[in-house]
Amino acid sequence: MSALEVIELDPGKAHMLPYAPSVRVPGSAEHLFLSGAVAADDEEYPDDIVEQVRRVMRRHTAVLAANGLGWSDVIHVYEFLTDMRDTVAVHVTMAEFFDDPSWKPANTLIGVDALVKPGARFELDVIAARAPHDADPADSVFWMSGATAIPLYHMHPHIPEECVLPDDIVEQTRRVLATFDEVLAFVGLGWSDVRRGDLFLTDLRDLDVVRAAVAARFGDDPPPLGFVGINALSAAGARLELEIVAGSPGNAAGGSPARAAGGAGAPPAVLTSAGAPVVFLPAVTATPGPNAAGIAPQTDQTLDGIAALLAERGLEWRAVTKALVEVTDIRDAAHVAAALAARCGTWRPALTIVQVDNLPVAGARVQVEVVAAG
């Protein structure tokens, strides 16, 4: 039996969701961070969403297998869709690859404006884990699915009546936070145990209201947080989605992450050593000015900020396991990826790049969020 555990607050309603509300991962686990993958690296894409999803899943299956893992070891996925009407087809097709019907990873699904390859409609970002069977359950981290203002357990595909949400952003925020109040309490944690949070907003004019409500939960010691404006969320009428990771801070001895086995054409993947704490850094957004309007200076400024955060924690670029890059113009992706590669030298972290609507700083074109191995 795996030391990983799907957390269901109401097992009788588990059939309603194609994902787990939360997954418990022992602190002693190895983590495998896979780069976001689209259907292929060649120039031609099938327009059929089912075929695109199958190709993505096969690519990730190969990387997982090369590292002695499978889909029942996957703890969290990001689904990025350019058309939210594809959601049901995506989930049905993904389910073909899960050989254990009782296993579901945590999941965050968001709509984005564009992906790194023209014609790509679906990108999947994957995190897997391998834990010893005798792992101490008291030393655990909980990877939680993103939540909108609809109830925690709601039928997929959505029943329209369930998705009628108040337009008021204050009420939607209250409902999202109440969901996490429930999930955190169920696993015996509180907001002070949150190690990272990401907020996705369909209108960044709501940012101040949402940020204030979230800050009230965290008090004087908030965790690293990321904010981004995106195209659409999984529930009709939803204006924000929050996802969090919570649990023990981790005090095991660190270890340098290693290149994970992949295969020809596989995007980068990174494997942490057993017991190495996962370190979440705050998202860094460029601050445009007279000399930083273009993507080159903004990228340098952003990566300088990441370097400073790493140095504060006694880490170097070699410790970076995963980078999520959000750009407001997907044509900037190649420049940002090249600049990141130059900082990392011979090291290559797992990498996911998506185009978003806008960023929390007016005029910003790039934001980078990093996970490292402590």
Rank of each mutant, 00 (worst) to 15 (best):
V228F: 08
A293L: 14
D221K: 08
P268A: 12
G229K: 01
A212H: 11
A276D: 12
V284S: 00
T285G: 10
V279K: 03
D203V: 05
A269T: 02
T287N: 12
D206R: 09
L281V: 15
S234C: 11
D221S: 09
V284Q: 05
A266P: 01
G250F: 00
A253Y: 00
A276H: 06
P249I: 03
N291M: 10
A216Y: 05
A269Y: 06
I244P: 01
P224K: 01
D208R: 14
G275N: 02
V279P: 00
P288L: 15
S256E: 05
N231Y: 07
S234W: 03
P288R: 07
A283K: 15
V279S: 14
T272D: 08
T287Q: 14
A261L: 10
A238W: 09
T285F: 14
T285V: 14
A253G: 06
S273K: 11
P267C: 05
P222K: 11
G247C: 01
L225I: 09
A283L: 11
T285H: 10
E243D: 05
P224L: 03
A292G: 11
A292N: 11
S273R: 15
G229H: 00
V228Y: 04
N251A: 13
R217H: 10
L281G: 04
G219S: 11
R211A: 15
G250H: 04
L207S: 13
G229L: 00
N231G: 05
P267S: 03
A286P: 01
L233F: 03
G250K: 02
A260T: 02
S273N: 15
E243Q: 09
S256Y: 12
G265F: 06
I244D: 01
R239A: 05
A269F: 00
G265W: 15
A261D: 12
L242D: 05
P257H: 07
S273L: 15
L207E: 10
L242N: 06
G247E: 01
N251V: 03
A293K: 11
A261M: 10
A260E: 02
A238Q: 12
A238D: 12
R205K: 05
P277K: 00
G275C: 12
S248R: 10
G250D: 00
G247I: 10
A296W: 03
P224T: 02
A246S: 03
A261E: 07
S248F: 08
A213V: 11
A260G: 07
A258T: 03
D203W: 04
V214T: 14
